[in-house]
């Protein structure tokens, strides 16, 4: 078992067009580091030096990690992580 990570259209250039990839880790930060080893550049589109980018939403199962523990949110095998860019503007 692993953690499934669902990738939005705009980031699929990092995953050879795959809609979902798998990874492992104990926290979201670990998981993103693990993914970045196989999909270089992906992590940087999701986090910056201050943490999660403001207009990218990351969910563990059904919960936005902003309402959990952000990058420290624990993850485990069988979880689904979904990355979705915010739909926003002015």
């Amino acid at each position: 078992m692993a953690i499934e990570v669902r990738i939005p259209t705009i980031l699929r250039s990092y995953t050879n067009g795959e809609k979902a990839v798998t990874g492992s880790g104990k926290t979201l930060a670990d998981l993103l580091a693990d993914l970045d080893a196989r999909h270089p550049g992906l992590r940087e589109r999701i986090v910056d030096e201050k943490g999660l980018r403001r207009f990218v939403n990351v969910y563990v199962n059904d919960e936005d990690v902003r309402f959990l523990a952000g990058l420290d949110t624990p993850v485990k095998d069988g979880d689904t992580v979904t990355v979705l860019p915010a739909v926003a503007g002015g």
Binding site: N57, Y59, D62, D64, R66, T82, L84, A88, G89, G90
Partner: peptide, 15 residues
């Protein structure tokens, strides 16, 4: 009147 953003839970449900 100058900004819009889909609610994050709505966004997940929609996708």
């Amino acid at each position: 009147p100058t900004f819009y953003e889909f609610d994050s839970a709505d966004l997940l449900r929609l996708y």
